[in-house]
Design a protein around this nucleic acid. Structure first.
Ligand SMILES: [Mn+2]
Ligand SMILES: [Mn+2]
Ligand SMILES: [Zn+2]
Ligand SMILES: [Zn+2]
Lengths: 137, 137
DNA sequence: ATAAACTTTGCAACCCGGTTGCAGGAACAT
DNA sequence: ATGTTCCTGCAACCGGGTTGCAAAGTTTAT
């Protein structure tokens, strides 16, 4: 497992420090996207700023992507191995209004949009809000 | 003009106080979506809390809709006259990474998404980021 | 091996958008 | 006129995010 973690980091040109290994471990176990405050709570004693910068580093190197789900805190989730976070790589996200979980709908690509003349697309954030399958029962 | 402002308020069952008339006036003139801090700056001396509650009232009564464009502050824009903010009523938004303006692309409806089983849709926030026609020159 | 240079971490402080409690004032109904 | 409800202004607070800085750790050059 540790092996794998380090490989992932190296594949994205991120030096495998202890802190980064731990954070990536959490992100790997995690099934839904996680916010900075939530990440903080996963550790007994961890510094917000360090975690913050760790996430920034991960994001810059496209190990993770961020989702603004409108809940007030940005969430983060692992990218697929080959992801370069280009517009074609993007998928839809789902934010549950009951449990607050945010899901990567990796099978659902963001639909192409035909923009008005002279508008240039760089990226898209598409978040569906509703009730997730866990809360639907 | 004042006439019109009051009519719009009454059409949404909002009592036309001075504050509300002024805010709606600003929102009507405004061509792009506006945030609470930006709205504050449109007035010499205005109370943030009052403006905040005014926007909330407007939103609850579907006179305006909110857009979370990921810039850190929620933006607001007028709804079309008949808008009920149902999923079918929603349109795509565009946030310019150069000038920071957020546009309502009212002609571009949010594409229908086929969610996984047991996921119930309530609403959608779709924001395209890029360079707007003004900044494209 | 030692020193210099660079990177990462931890702590504290700060910024800012958003939100709430409360008291005074305006509008409305009786 | 009196009571009730709604609106406004002020102040304080909250929480996520961000930064400066010095200590600790790592890498590179001598
Ligand atoms: Mn995702
Ligand atoms: Mn809009
Ligand atoms: Zn749920
Ligand atoms: Zn622009």
């Amino acid at each position: 497992m540790k092996e794998n973690i380090d490989k992932q980091l190296q594949a994205r040109n991120i030096k495998p420090t202890t802190m980064r290994q731990l954070v990536l471990q959490v992100l790997t176990v995690q099934k839904t996207a996680i916010s900075l405050p939530e990440l903080e709570n996963k550790f007994e004693k961890a510094d917000k700023a360090t975690l913050y910068r760790t996430l920034k580093t991960f994001e810059e190197n496209k190990l993770i992507h961020s989702i603004d789900d409108g809940t007030g805190s940005v969430k983060y989730a692992l990218c697929r191995e080959a992801c370069e976070c280009h517009p074609e790589d993007l998928h839809v996200h789902f934010s549950c209004t009951v449990c607050g979980q945010t899901y990567c709908l990796t099978d659902i690509p963001v639909p192409k949009i035909h923009l008005p003349a002279q508008f240039q697309l760089e990226s898209v954030n598409m978040v569906v809000k509703g009730i997730c399958s866990n809360c639907d029962k």
